[in-house]
Design a binder for these strands. Sequence first.
DNA 1: CGCCTTTCTTGACTGATTCCAGAAAATGCA
DNA 2: TGCATTTTCTGGAATCAGTCAAGAAAGGCG
Lengths: 145, 145
Amino acid sequence: MFTAAQDELNLRGAGLRVTRPRLAVLAAVHARPHAETDSIIGAVRADLGEVSHQAVYDVLRVLTSAGLVRRIQPSGSVARYESRLADNHHHLVCRACGTIVDVECAVGVTPCLTASEDHGFTIDEAEVVYWGLCPDCSTPDRPST
Amino acid sequence: MFTAAQDELNLRGAGLRVTRPRLAVLAAVHARPHAETDSIIGAVRADLGEVSHQAVYDVLRVLTSAGLVRRIQPSGSVARYESRLADNHHHLVCRACGTIVDVECAVGVTPCLTASEDHGFTIDEAEVVYWGLCPDCSTPDRPST
DNA sequence: CGCCTTTCTTGACTGATTCCAGAAAATGCA
DNA sequence: TGCATTTTCTGGAATCAGTCAAGAAAGGCG
């Protein structure tokens, strides 16, 4: 699991200072995968009291560039953050309601990591997004309203 | 190639009216793959004279939902549009300069189209984005400035 | 040719994200 | 522990892509 102590170690390991907002942001990202920024701001404020949105944006940027959280942003969605890293899982996004679900990488290790032609690029990551409809949105006989 | 006559047929085939802004937007998308909205607006205005940005946004939305163009939006980028459809190619994005290049789907037909677990979703598309550095940005001994 | 529907124009507005400058807090070292 | 330095947080304003709304114009069909 993710503990505050572990988060603290990770922060120090990345050469970052340990601050309350940073721990609260990490806890919020752990607790609600794929949370959007606004939701994280809410969680942090529920935890610490008043915190500026600026601080949260800044923390998220720092954590992202340090590799402690990953930023994802499917088309038509605002930025979302998750803490599962380095296990190359992918995402399943509902076109209707925007729900995001994790899926393990399909075949073994990295089936999609190699492009057929690299055009001279140095590729470091393959991101796969599956688009479709979630169970709730794909059953017309069960209207949500 | 893409011709205005073909675009007109495609529009009619999709049940859409044929208007100058629509043809100009289609031509612009054909001419510059992965163009962002702003660039398309510029191209359309160079072609037709003054056209409202609103019209271009609206046309792009209509064409996208009609399936005549595809909207792509890698994290940290504004919306971009392309006209290559239904050949499931993927994209190679430079983290530094944002350049986007097409790559053919790696292995045969649809190697990544099947998620290991579908969580009850009805999946209709798998989008693959390869992240890395383009040749220009990955050679430190050739600074761009 | 004339009507009806769809599309374009104009202008304002929203919402996410970033920039800026000063105040506050944490770190490192003696 | 105490001080100086460095980094972070606060608060407000600004930016930028994209959207909304109402009226004017144009396309399509009989």
